[in-house]
Structures are given as C-alpha cells and as structure tokens.
Design a protein around this nucleic acid. Sequence first.
DNA 1: TCAATATATAACCATTTGGTTTCACTTTAA
DNA 2: TTAAAGTGAAACCAAATGGTTATATATTGA
Lengths: 108, 108
Amino acid sequence: MAAEKHDVFQAIADPTRRQVLQLLVEQDLPISEIASHFQISRTAVVKHLGVLTEAGLVDSEKIGREKRYHLRPEPLSEVKDWLGFYEQFWENKLTRLKHVLEAEEGRE
Amino acid sequence: MAAEKHDVFQAIADPTRRQVLQLLVEQDLPISEIASHFQISRTAVVKHLGVLTEAGLVDSEKIGREKRYHLRPEPLSEVKDWLGFYEQFWENKLTRLKHVLEAEEGRE
DNA sequence: TCAATATATAACCATTTGGTTTCACTTTAA
DNA sequence: TTAAAGTGAAACCAAATGGTTATATATTGA
C-alpha cells in the first residue's frame, strides 16, 4: 500500500523534475546542493522533491542538518511497461499489409 | 520545425490521454466514437486530442462530417530514450561495489 | 428540403501547478 | 555562545489544466 498521491507519469512530466533525477544518478545530494543547479528558489525545488518522493522516485535521509536525497528509479518501470503498448500498433499494421498482399496474389 | 507546444512527457501525463492512445492502437476513430469511451464530455475529449496533436502523438483527417484520428507513436521514442538514463545509476552502483570488494581483498 | 449527425468554438469555472517571499527552527563550527 | 548553514513551513499569486454548458456550422440521408 504505497498510497502514492503522485503518479510517476505526472512526476516526470516536468522538465525540472527530470533534471533532478538525472542529478541524483551521479550521487546522493542534499537539498541546497540540488537547488544550486537551478535558477528557481530552494523552496520551489523542495516542492519538486516532494512530488518525486510521492511518486516513489526518490527518498531521503536526514544527516545532521542536511537532508540527502537518493534516486529510486524502480517506479519508472511502469512507464517503460506502458510504452510497450504501441508495439501492438506495428503488429496490426503488418497484419493488414499481409491481408492486402494476399488479396493481390488471389487476383493474379 | 515542429513547433510543438505540448511536450510528449506532458501529453502522456494524463490517464485519459493515455487511454485515448490505447484506443487508437486498434484502429483510426472519429471524435464521437472516442468520446463514447469516456464519461467526460465530447468537448473535453476534443481538448485532450488537441494536446495529443500538439505533441505529435496523433493526427487527424476530415472525412465528410467526421474527423478521424490516427495514432502516431513515433514521438514516444523520446520518452523511451530518456528512460534509459538511469541505467547509468546501476553501472555506478556496480562500480562502487567493485571498489569495496577490491579494498576487502587488499586487507586480507 | 429538413432533421439528424458530427464537429467547432466561445465563455466560463474550480482546482492544480509552479513559483514566490517571509519567518521559524535545528545543527554546526569557530 | 552565537553566527552561519541547512531545512521546514506558511501565505500568497498567476497561469495552466481539465472540466462544463451553450451556441453555431457543416454534412448527410430520407
């Protein structure tokens, strides 16, 4: 029961949030360090981190006065899986093409 | 120069729009037919189709009084490509683990 | 020709989103 | 012990989002 308020698709819809995820690929980072990579305020970055947390894409740990964020890419598999859906599209196209070709042969 | 106002990531952020795309995998469909699959008004569906069009994920053709929509899955490759980014994450982890193991060996 | 079908468009609305500024609290280091 | 660093959280704002209803226009078929 993850009870994730924010959906993964929504979480990655924002370009700033996608950049945050990219940053965390290299290493875990505290809020202020993450914020230093963007023009927007630290508060705005914190909100983005909140969305990413709710989507399960990051988690965090308080160390001293810092709060370090860590990448959790697992939920992205939902996106990856969904993306596969349109392979059916190409299969359908091939099937129709095959029917057309068979009809052509029949006429010859 | 596609000049696409809506980004693909944003286009697929909405669950209704994802369902519309799935519908169009099977076959091209006119607006009213698409709308009949949802509870929301036809006008609302038309707006979703507008977003999908701007993202290049569908196109349409007016046939008589109908406007038939057609799936264009190509832009989804941008999402697929982006998704690959976090493979670097696993590579990083493996590299670090390797270092730890080498240090262990050195101590023995 | 005329009603039914399909779409287009405008005006409007509530909520969400992405941002801001301000102030308070906790931890660290000199 | 006190200033600086790092974070938390509230209040506020404009614009975008996802929806509605109402009205107009174009096409078809009997």
